[in-house]
């Protein structure tokens, strides 16, 4: 009776597996020669299979031949790779345990939120935006009034505010930096304002009373909503890749008119709908719009001449998407085992 070809092929597969195990357990390239003899030598494990070539049925012969040659070549090339530039082991060599761990170098880490912030900054820097900063303790004027959020107006409810005095607040957004910059400079202006902001939110998986925002502003002659869409489009692609789509939908902010919320297509499911985007295919990122003429009035810009756009984004939100962090508190817990992953 002829030997069963299936049986032989499975034995060959087993032989290959044994070989690979042996190779991966081999910590000294100079031992490779021994492995070579064991498998490829004249009395090696493979040679016995070649003798079977004459015993299988004629129709199975080419198949077995092909398999045997393929395996032989594979074993040969693996052995060659390992033993390159190594001379045969001399028995007198002292044993030196190269497998002991190296003494680790101490490498510091940047906080993940700042890594994301740096990436955002570098994208906008390359798009010609400057970086501007301002204080975290802001006056009511810069944080609200000059942004067309008067006292006793329901739009104040959009942001729960920490008050120090009636006139001094912890800034609820970095938008006041827009006002400070426009008061200081004349157009053209292309700036971003990154920084810490505060809102009186109860703490949960997506809310923390402190967060980081990047606010953008561009003011010049002839700036349109189409330019705003262009900048957000470019930013989305730089940050999340070529396939990301953007969507703008109407909203309300006192300091922009028209106002929009902008969304990115879900970075996890590519817009098909998943648990991250709650099945919608879209991820809410933040707000944007054309600078309201009322804001220009506060900084003495001629709104007949200049137009501008502004946009915001939350660094935590983007970091959570980028690193798939489910709980915003992880960023502020500062567990070193978490921080060292970035």
């Amino acid at each position: 009776m002829n030997p069963d070809i299936k049986e032989i092929l499975s034995q060959l597969e087993q032989l290959k597996q044994n070989f690979l195990d042996e190779i991966s357990n081999n910590l000294d390239a100079r031992n490779t020669e021994d492995i070579k003899v064991k498998y490829l030598g004249r009395k090696g494990k493979l040679s016995s299979f070649f003798s079977l070539l004459g015993k299988v049925t004629p129709e199975n012969k080419p198949l077995l031949g092909q398999e045997l040659n393929r395996l032989k070549n594979f074993l040969q090339s693996e052995v060659d790779n390992l033993s390159k530039s190594v001379t045969k082991k001399s028995k007198k060599d002292d044993f030196f345990d190269i497998s002991l761990p190296g003494v680790p170098a101490e490498i510091g880490t940047k906080h993940p939120l700042y890594q994301v912030l740096d990436e955002i900054k570098s994208i906008f820097t390359s798009l010609g935006f400057t970086t501007e900063t301002g204080p975290e303790l802001e006056t009511d004027f810069y944080n609200f009034e000059a942004l067309n959020i008067p006292k006793d107006h329901p739009s104040r409810d959009l942001q729960d505010t920490f008050y120090i005095t009636d006139e001094l607040v912890l800034r609820t957004h970095t938008s006041p930096v827009q006002i400070r910059t426009m008061k200081k400079m004349k157009p053209p202006i292309r700036m971003i304002a990154p920084g810490k902001c505060y809102r009186k939110d109860s703490i949960d998986a997506t809310h923390f009373p402190v967060f980081h925002q990047v606010e953008g502003l561009c003011v010049d002659v002839g700036v349109t909503f189409a330019d705003l869409k262009g900048i957000i489009w470019a930013f989305a692609k730089r940050l999340f890749g070529e396939d990301v789509k953007i969507r703008f939908r109407p909203s309300f902010f006192p300091f922009t008119e028209p106002s929009a919320e902008y969304d990115f297509s879900c970075v996890k499911c590519n817009g098909k709908g998943c648990n991250i985007c709650k099945g919608t295919g879209w991820l809410e990122i933040s707000g944007a719009g054309m600078v309201d003429p009322a804001v220009f009035k506060y900084v003495d810009y001629d709104s007949d001449k200049y137009t501008g756009y502004a946009f915001g984004m939350g660094v935590e939100r983007i970091a959570m998407l980028k690193y798939q962090v489910a709980d915003i508190r992880d960023f502020y817990e500062n567990d070193l085992r978490f921080l060292k992953q970035f």
Binding site: G108, K110, E132, T133, R190, V210, Y332, L336, L339
Partner: peptide, 30 residues
């Protein structure tokens, strides 16, 4: 457009400290 040098200095300080093996933390200021 002008570059915000002070902000750039911040970055330099941060990078140099990280090179010394420090882990950056970020707390909520309150």
């Amino acid at each position: 457009l002008p570059v915000n040098m002070q902000e750039k200095f911040d970055q330099k300080v941060r990078d140099n400290i990280i090179r010394m093996g420090y882990n950056e933390i970020l707390t909520h200021s309150m």
